[in-house]
Structures are given as structure tokens and as C-alpha cells.
């Protein structure tokens, strides 16, 4: 019985591998909350991912706790967001600290009360550069 030649299989797999390596970015943090980002037309691709601190606001996966705030990898009490963000900033090298930016990934159904509280915290500690993550749409 003639066998199918599998000599080209590694080549195919390598091609897939290269494709995924080119199109994806390294995952840094895992959101522990469910977030559906709002859509917008004017969002831009962030050019450099250095010196970014992520603040996630979303629904808890276990349910029943409403909206939760997560800074980089950990859940944070709303009153401690500013301090935590600054602690994360201190961990970075000086050149990265100079272009420090806080990226807010917020669930589209979050209330502005919570968003304002987070922004006030950031203002208080002087983290003025922020960006609002969203999904790109072209209509």
C-alpha cells in the first residue's frame, strides 16, 4: 500500500508558525474581568507598547460583584488605583517612565461614575497621559 508523503508537513507547519508569529503580539497580562470594548472610528493603533500600564474595568467572571477594577494583573480597590498605578510605574526603567501612559480598557456598559473615579485617581497621582481602548470600526 503506497503511503502519503509527509515530507512537506514540517514546511506547512512552519509556515503557519511564521504567520502566527508575525500577526500576533505577546500577551502581557490576562484580563480577569469580562470586557466588551466600545467601538469607534477614530481609534488609532498604539505605536509602542513600552511604559504602558493597563487598567481594566469590567464585569467579574464569577458574577454578582458588578464592575471590578484591575490594574495590570491584580484586582484593586477603587480608592487604591492611583497608588497602584504609581507603584507599577516605579517598576519600569527611567526611559519607559518618561513616556508612561495608562491604557484604560473599559467595558462599554460601565457607568461614568466609576470611570470618573478612576480618572480622578489618575489625576491625583499625576498620570495624565491616558488612552481609551476601543474596537476599530469603519462605517
Amino acid at each position: 500500500m503506497p503511503t502519503v508523503s509527509t515530507a512537506a508537513l514540517p514546511d506547512i507547519i512552519f509556515m503557519l508558525l511564521f504567520f502566527f508569529m508575525m500577526t500576533s503580539t505577546i500577551r502581557r497580562h490576562t484580563a480577569k474581568v469580562n470586557i466588551k470594548l466600545p467601538t469607534a472610528q477614530t481609534v488609532e493603533k498604539r505605536t509602542d507598547s513600552d511604559g504602558v500600564c493597563f487598567v481594566y474595568i469590567g464585569e467579574s467572571r464569577t458574577g454578582g460583584q458588578g464592575m471590578l477594577v484591575q490594574v495590570n494583573d491584580d484586582f484593586v480597590d477603587i480608592a487604591k488605583v492611583g497608588a497602584t498605578v504609581m507603584a507599577e510605574k516605579k517598576k519600569l526603567t527611567q526611559p519607559k517612565q518618561d513616556k508612561f501612559i495608562v491604557s484604560l480598557k473599559i467595558h462599554k456598559d460601565a457607568r461614568m461614575k466609576l470611570v470618573k473615579q478612576v480618572k480622578d485617581q489618575l489625576k491625583q497621582v499625576g498620570a495624565m497621559q491616558i488612552d481609551y481602548s476601543g474596537t476599530h470600526s469603519t462605517f
Partner: peptide
């Protein structure tokens, strides 16, 4: 190659970081 492929699939994300830049007002 399969092993490498699976490693990259697990450690990477496909979501593109799109965002709106804003400076908080003093």
C-alpha cells in the same frame, strides 16, 4: 514545529491595541 506553533498560540494574543489618546486636563 507543532510544539513551537502551540507555544506561540498560547503566549500571544490576536487583539490589536486600538485606542484614543487623551491627556487628562490639569
Amino acid at each position: 514545529a507543532f510544539l513551537l506553533l502551540i507555544f506561540f498560540l498560547l503566549t500571544s494574543t490576536m487583539d490589536r491595541n486600538y485606542s484614543m489618546r487623551r491627556d487628562l486636563p490639569a
